[in-house]
């Protein structure tokens, strides 16, 4: 029964992973992200583990426009168990270029030391064109490192945005040590998908 419940949880909860969108209390995070849609630089500060506020500057490759956002992320729900953690986040952003440019969405993750699953859905409202993004990401840690070790995740990610209209699936590698994280993937269609993060 336990196995069935765990499997169902895995299937139901799996969906985007913006790795740790909220830091520890008083913690700051800098993220750089690039994929086929955008190049982004994002800083956020977390007054508590429940929410973060931040600024994002991005260059939209498809719409060929630059945006700056004030962003807010809120932890809607967290479930801690001895061997797992599950999170559900609300994310939003309003552009400094005008409130007609904004986004909102949810993303969640469930992970153990060995397994990771994440999902996300984001609705983007733009003066030029509205669109949505969604993804599902699943991962496996090939070895279980101790605290402070170099950690590795092998992942598979599938994503879709309404501008391109089709799903793109590709492998990802995620590495982290201490406060540094790097994640990258590649396929012929979406090209490079890379994410760098530093927490301090």
């Amino acid at each position: 029964m336990g196995i069935v419940l765990i499997t169902l949880t895995l299937l139901l909860v799996s969906t985007i992973s913006e790795t740790r969108p909220i830091s520890y209390p008083g913690g700051s995070t800098v993220m750089a992200f690039t994929d086929n849609l955008k190049d982004s630089l994002y800083y956020h500060y977390s007054p508590s583990y429940k929410y973060s506020i931040g600024l994002e500057s991005l260059k939209h490759k498809v719409l060929e426009q630059d945006y700056s956002y004030v962003r807010f992320t809120y932890l809607l729900n967290r479930k801690n168990t001895q061997n797992s953690q599950r999170n559900l986040y609300f994310q939003s952003g309003v552009s400094l270029n005008g409130v007609n440019n904004h986004f909102y969405g949810v993303h969640g993750d469930w992970e153990t030391r060995r397994w990771f699953s994440g999902f996300g859905y984001k609705q983007e409202r733009r003066e030029v064109e509205d669109y949505s993004e969604q993804f599902v990401q699943l991962g496996l840690a090939p070895y279980l490192g101790d605290y402070g070790d170099f950690h590795t995740w092998i992942m598979i990610k599938t994503k879709k945005n309404s501008l391109s209209g089709s799903w793109s699936t590709y492998p990802l590698l995620k590495f982290f040590k201490g406060d540094f994280l790097i994640e990258f993937g590649y396929n012929d269609k979406t090209k490079l998908d890379a994410h760098l993060m530093y927490r301090f």
């Binding site: 801690n80 953690q85 605290y147 070790d149 950690h151």
Partner: peptide, 16 residues
């Protein structure tokens, strides 16, 4: 501790 499943989770605890 419950929910401390990754290095990143524990790092905030250490800093506190």
């Amino acid at each position: 501790v419950k929910g401390m499943v990754c290095d990143f989770c524990a790092r905030g605890i250490e800093k506190t």
